[in-house]
Design a protein around this nucleic acid. Structure first.
Lengths: 196, 196
DNA sequence: TCCTTATTTGAACGATTGTTCTATTTTGAG
DNA sequence: CTCAAAATAGAACAATCGTTCAAATAAGGA
């Protein structure tokens, strides 16, 4: 008797989608529920029908986004044979999955002392997915002899933070210049860790 | 008759100092005037005695901070002889001038459609100072034959954005691990653009 | 058709926001 | 010592914030 979903799940998806864009563009504190309401066309009250509160909404769509992110990457990662190729592929992948600017927003929330402990804990897991993917590539490169890395963990952090900021440029740039930026960053990074 | 400054200029400096820290830590929208009031010990009203409004306050201390930043860098830049050394020196310098996290906050403000045009224009000049300093180093390196760079402008943007995010770590890390992070980033970067 | 349940709205809430205003204290020149 | 100007505080403002809630609508099973 509970098989009546109407178009509700679809609505929930629309809200999550638009909210993610707004958060990425204007930050957590900078995005009001009224903004989300206006942008989606649904009433403020209805947003609270789907999500317990603003914090939970953000956490939900962050984790959801990251889960999809990981799945999609794993689907294409196999098509690259060397670690170096994988790194270029990763940059291209990151660039095209624009929702990654949510990462700095997560940092913003984590910094704020008013953020609830549960949210904080949930946020811990946000960066794990991409970081694990980066680390895997670097490990592969070390094993295959492509890379000469002293501290893989540190290298992962450095690469991850760099990718994170470059994502910001997806909001102001596009096309070939943007693509060159990501590509060039990998060229420099690989040049800096390549075995010689 | 107007030579009575009391300790007012000092007060203004205290407000600017603390406000800069708060903005860097919690973002522009995340920092309330009440926060600044509580943290400085001065009343909310008094903050408006010194600064026209929150936006102007941020713009003022951003430009002020950057001016000092440029002056201090120019004072030490001469002590490094090669462009490579300068790049390491720059990373160390950026790390120790923690207020640079204001840069991402400027981006946050720039993104928000409610930000006044005057503020936007003033914000344009925010990143100019450090970017010019970075660019000078890269040009020197190309001239001296240390670096092999195709597009200096692009390289500057890449280095600048990387330094920008690494600054975020000054809020959560310190001491030797933090220092190693900055140093390692330069090592990788230099390795990626070094002439060979 | 009717009625339970899911969906959606819109008004309203108290809290917090940036800002203004008036009153009070402190200062140094005369 | 006096007094106008400067410095500071604190109450009050309207606007906006996140959130709640009662009421209205829509939908499908009975």
């Amino acid at each position: 008797m509970n098989k009546r979903h109407y178009n509700s799940e679809e609505t929930r998806q629309i809200i999550a989608e638009k909210a993610a864009q707004l958060f990425a563009k204007k930050g957590f504190a900078g995005t009001s529920v009224a903004d989300i309401s206006r942008e989606t066309g649904f009433s403020k009250g209805h947003i609270y029908y789907h999500f317990e509160n603003k914090e939970k909404l953000f956490v939900h769509l962050s984790l959801e986004t990251m889960r999809h992110w990981g799945d999609r990457w794993n689907a294409v990662a196999g098509s690259y044979s060397t670690a170096t190729e994988k790194l270029y592929g990763m940059a291209y992948f990151v660039m095209n999955n624009y929702k990654t600017p949510l990462l700095p927003v997560g940092q913003e929330l984590a910094m704020n002392p008013n953020t609830s402990p549960e949210t904080l804990q949930a946020l811990q897991g946000l960066a794990v997915t991409p970081m694990a993917a980066y680390a895997a590539i670097f490990h592969e490169g070390v094993t295959s002899g492509e890379f000469d890395i002293e501290n893989v963990e540190e290298t992962t952090l450095l690469f991850g933070s760099w990718m994170g900021t470059l994502c910001q440029f997806t909001l102001t740039m596009e096309g070939e210049p943007l693509q060159r930026l990501f590509q060039q960053s990998v060229t420099i990074f690989v040049g800096g860790i390549r075995k010689r």
